[in-house]
Amino acid sequence: MIEIDSRAFGNKIKNIRNSKHFSLRQVSNQSKDETGVAISPSYWSLVERGKRNIPKPQTLKRIAKGLRVDESDVFRMAGLEAPTEATNLTRITSSEMVSVPIIGEIACGEPITAIENVSGHMLLPNNLVKGGDYFILKCIGKSMEPTIMNDSNVLVRAQPDVENGQIAAVLLDDDTTATLKRIKKTKNSVILMPDNPDFEPIVLNEDKPGRIIGVVKMEMKMF
């Protein structure tokens, strides 16, 4: 381990963030781990200004995710040895894994996980997909950035309704177009809200129908 000054580390983090034109809110939203825990913008600012000690390894991993850089790069900047693949992986037996379908183009009128829609499968640990039916859906477009990036894959729990503020997978038009949006319910309509302010909301009502097919649980890394 190399002794690194917290101010020097903070400057490096800030330079990377500025080079990518990310705001503190963006890197915070992008730093969520598998359990949904993120680094707050205020804490991130303190780290950049050298007002906090070098973060712990788990926080460094979230910093790397927020900056969209390799974990090994952030660990080196912190003067730490990058975690190896062997130290990050826990042996999981085949009996502890579940095959989850990856949804490609959606066939009109078919259930979301019908064979016509499935482009492949991904093995996931049982504990990630408890208590329901799950599928993986590819995000196409930038309307949910920085929360969900273009071309990323999300794990969706199949269900016909979600709570206000949750991100849902919604079928539009003739049941062949799926979109990911944050749900806002009103008395007479459901509004699909983008997280990216450059995009307009979509209003679902009698004239423009749609149906919720699931709630987004987490963004997936595809290997």
Score class of each variant (00 low, 15 high):
R25T: 06
S28F: 04
N29C: 07
S31L: 03
E34A: 11
E34R: 06
A38N: 01
S42Q: 14
Y43T: 08
Y43F: 12
L46E: 12
L46I: 00
V47Q: 06
R49K: 14
R49P: 01
K51C: 02
R52H: 00
N53M: 01
N53K: 05
N53F: 01
I54T: 01
K56G: 08
P57A: 02
T59N: 07
L60C: 01
L60H: 02
K61T: 07
R62L: 06
I63N: 09
R68H: 13
D70H: 03
D70Q: 00
E71S: 14
V74P: 03
F75C: 07
R76V: 09
A78G: 03
E81T: 08
A82T: 03
N88E: 12
E96D: 15
E96I: 05
E96L: 07
S99R: 14
V100W: 04
I102H: 11
E105W: 03
E110H: 07
A114M: 07
E116S: 15
N117I: 05
V118D: 11
G120N: 14
G120K: 07
H121F: 15
L123G: 09
L124Q: 12
N126L: 13
L128T: 08
G132L: 14
D133V: 07
D133W: 09
F135C: 07
K138F: 13
C139G: 03
G141V: 07
G141H: 10
P146T: 01
N153R: 13
N153A: 11
